[in-house]
Design a protein around this nucleic acid. Structure first.
Lengths: 333, 333
DNA sequence: CTGAAAGCGCTTACAG
DNA sequence: CTGAAAGCGCTTACAG
């Protein structure tokens, strides 16, 4: 590895001049600039990240911590980061409490800011990280003071999709809600809120037995479908908090010979790849993941450079995707 | 951020002593050790990564570059890396030629070694990276000189699964092969090799029309299934190079009223989650991903510390998973 | 426009 | 066991 001294020697200039041309930070006379560039090329010189970042007290790098990589979000993060001159690294962290393992990465200023992507970890740990770094929560909101967060408008999306069901003449709409850990994850709570709001606005009765508990698995979706079929007063529509669950319900309903949406309408949330492929194609809510990634970086870099201390929540508009699973005719009674 | 000087001042010792206790590198008298530790705690002191890594010319960090995160491989990498005192970071890199974007990360010694996880990039770029860093190719072998690689025994797995099909009385076995980019990916070539070897060993005729081209998508699997059904002399078994394709074939066969495995046996490769769930459960080959991750790190860290220059390929044993899709009775003729 | 020099926060011979 | 000091490879006032 060539150092700045070797380049300076070969180019016949001082290290200061080399530094200036490598960084384009000051005007350098054309002939020296050329000589430095040639020497750098000849020696295959690359400024040391460590020395440079040490001097500058920044590394122009953002870290994403997650246990599931949402590729479109990452792509958005990378695109915006690139535009702003940042690199993006990912730290994979399985499970809820395993997050603590990342502390080693976090302890020192190796990165300038952190994105917690759908991370579920204990509040104490999050607060600890917030003390050390600029942090933006992406996807899943946290109920901690002064948090910086970016996510889809989950309530609005749920509200819109249930409104759509109602507009199709549905009157008894079940909600399938993943319920693991202690209590519903925040995004599920908010989607439920949108669901209940829509019912209320249209004077439809809400009853607790319309809430079907599940987890995040496809099997759990099958099972939710079975429980819905077994209900005394069977719902004429099902809104599932995730597409995976909705696909599970569809399977069960079809296996039992029901026609969708004629006999029962099914809607999901997330616009997974499966939602387009399944039969019938699933009405759902798309989260603009790429844009969420972009916005997260905008916020994070603003935090880094402006040392903001007052938290804020950015809500990215949802996109309703109306497909066959809800939009067809209802069966005649 | 507290610095080593502040800690030294508070503890009433020299910075050298602080450094020694932070690193446990030399014996320090108990009372000073305690004073340093207390001061470090009080000041919330964390040694600067940049300064430390600059002095040591290493960062104890491994970078995984990939366009799809295989979580079990990453978990294996992390487990072994932790044991050996390394951190693990991931650089996501979409698409084939987008890899060049990672050059910024790669240019300087921010990490000590690199794992290319199933990366498909141009040979020239790979050779370039190999020049700058210790690199281990994980999953997909590269045909470049002196490469260090770790992967499943793809040929052995394919050979074993086709042997199994033959042992079940199958005589005409098709091979569904994803064929994108220019030519078959290496792992597909090798799986085909195992397939052909098994046929040959049992005196079964091979013919080119038994090779069904596809890509990597589920739809492509459906389509492959259709083409197989349309064949004049219909095969009695299908070995798909991936589980995704196998699941697609199963769908098509079932939609056409065929019984699996009675009418036609189907086998895949990869032991995806779907392979267990689908109906009937799919016979496949499991890759021990966690172990592959571990072994990759063993090799990479050996390269880092021992400056090895002669390449090697480590093959991790496959595990055959025999399930219903092949193991039931064949239909009577 | 340019160079000599100080300084970033560490580690590690060197001498005691 | 411990400290004073050199040095890692950069950047950036400072002076010219």
């Amino acid at each position: 590895m060539a150092t700045i001294d070797e380049v300076a020697a070969m180019a016949g200039v001082s290290v200061a001049t080399v530094s200036r041309v490598m960084n384009n930070s000051y005007v350098v006379s054309e002939d020296k600039r050329v000589r430095v560039l040639q020497a750098a090329q000849a020696l295959n010189y690359q400024p040391s990240t460590f020395s440079r970042s040490q001097r500058r007290a920044e590394n122009k790098t953002i870290l994403i911590i997650c246990s599931v990589v949402i590729y479109d979000v990452v792509a958005g993060v990378q695109a915006m980061a690139k535009k702003l001159g940042y690199d993006v690294l990912i730290h994979y962290n399985a499970g809820r409490n395993a997050e603590l393992d990342s502390i080693k990465v976090l302890n020192n200023k190796l990165v300038d800011g952190i994105i917690l992507l759908n991370v579920l970890m204990d509040d104490d740990d999050i607060i600890e990280i917030n003390k050390r770094y600029p942090v933006v929560h992406c996807g899943e909101y946290m109920d901690i003071p002064n948090a910086f967060q970016v996510s889809t408008d989950n309530e609005g999306g749920a509200h819109a999709i249930v409104n759509h069901l109602i507009s199709q003449g549905r009157k008894r709409i079940a909600f399938v809600a993943p319920d693991i850990f202690n209590g519903l994850p925040h995004f599920v709570q908010v989607r439920e809120k949108g669901y209940r709001l829509a019912l209320q606005e249209h004077g439809l009765p809400f009853s607790p037995d319309l809430i079907i508990k599940a987890d995040f698995s496809l099997e759990s979706g099958y099972d939710a479908g079975r429980r819905i079929l077994a209900m005394a007063d069977r719902p004429d529509a099902v809104f599932c908090a995730t597409d995976t669950l909705a696909v599970g319900c569809i399977h069960t309903f079809r296996d039992h010979g029901l026609s969708i949406p004629a006999d029962i309408a099914v809607a999901g949330f997330d616009n997974d790849e499966a939602s387009e492929i399944c039969t019938p194609p699933l009405t759902t809510v798309a989260q603009p993941f790429f844009e969420i990634g972009c916005e997260t970086v905008r916020l994070l870099t603003a935090m880094i450079s402006e040392e903001m201390t007052i938290g804020r929540s950015v809500m990215i508009d949802y996109q309703l995707k109306i497909r066959e699973s809800t939009a067809g005719k209802k069966a005649k009674v």
